[in-house]
Design a protein around this nucleic acid. Sequence first.
DNA 1: TCCACATGTTTATGCTGTTAACATGAGCGT
DNA 2: ACGCTCATGTTAACAGCATAAACATGTGGA
Lengths: 216, 216
Amino acid sequence: MSVKGNSVNIKDSPELSGKVSGKASGAYHHGDLRATAIAAGMTRIADMAHPDLGLRALARELGVSATALYRHFPNKDALLDALALEALNRLGISQSEAAQAASDVREGFVDVGVTYVQWSVENPALVRLIYDRVGKVDLETDDPSEMGEAFLQLRKGITALMPDTMSGEQRTVAALHAWSLVHGLAMLILDGQVEYDPQMVRKVVESAEFGSKNSG
Amino acid sequence: MSVKGNSVNIKDSPELSGKVSGKASGAYHHGDLRATAIAAGMTRIADMAHPDLGLRALARELGVSATALYRHFPNKDALLDALALEALNRLGISQSEAAQAASDVREGFVDVGVTYVQWSVENPALVRLIYDRVGKVDLETDDPSEMGEAFLQLRKGITALMPDTMSGEQRTVAALHAWSLVHGLAMLILDGQVEYDPQMVRKVVESAEFGSKNSG
DNA sequence: TCCACATGTTTATGCTGTTAACATGAGCGT
DNA sequence: ACGCTCATGTTAACAGCATAAACATGTGGA
């Protein structure tokens, strides 16, 4: 059901149905702190404009000492990476849903683009988290493979939407144009420079014409 | 020479020619700590990928106690706002230079767009700082007028580049498209998702055709 | 049953922004 | 030229942060 096998599956973990705070009645061990921490971190960050997660605050919410998290994540960055990966998977799901729902290729492109912006507006901190983190992974000790693959899929999805009448370079340029357009639009909205107007967003995305101008 | 009167004019402040660290020979008072702090903060941030400025580190570099900065800025955010404003002015200068250097209108649009991306790549932390800060200013006690005006000028500059054969809404859509395109492209490069290739950047910007398709 | 190891806790360190109380000296009015 | 005032600097202290080290617990396998 998940895009890859990466999505954090809460239902797989025991004693975690609904309640997030507090461990199971007086148990010394928590059960599945890693998954719980990620889940709580996601809901915590999801309501923010900018991702700002404190280990102590999170641990407090989970009814656990701050240092307990270090048994599951080497440091704060690793936790944020896990959250970013989960966020990226959610974005990917949203994207592929939009792609499948559309019939026409041209319409599909517009819908996917609009969905990208919409999802970003609805999950501002998650988008920021994704792009904040993905750039830092490469050279560190972290394993970039998961994040990298998820991103690769996003890119391939975009490129696949380009009309196949194009040459290789044309497709590259068009895909980059499309991605930049929706990403930039989303960012400008998140940063408060452009007010979110769904109709306007659609018009802007539609104004990108990649060789298929005669289809509208 | 500055876009508005907002640019921090270092030369106006006394005893500050070249050297940044250390106050004037044993003087208890610094001279012009505010301007020095902004200047040092700019050069300090300019070399970073993400803006990360510590008050204590900055104060140390200036040979001054950390709390001294509180005589000139109510808090850290206010200092960052001042830096963001300075950064925005520099971007504005770069933009208007590019606009004036171009002859053709169409060529001017492309050049300005390419310059936007190039400046962003050369000053990653400053772009981030600008867009991080500008969204937070509105509702706070800070005075949004300066930053707002500088941004208004950026927007007007973009809109002015659109062909005047367009209707009002067409112009709005086209301007938003243009801004989103270059902003998104710049951000994707900064976040490491797209490698910086000046020729590719130009091609992508050129692939935006706003009614003037017959000029290429 | 018992031991080992994963997973929790408490304690401590050095960083951060920020406040409060105190010190200094430049500049103005007399 | 004297002295007051105020802007601008200082040090000390606090709360919160990420993180490391040492210790405690209880679960699962031999």
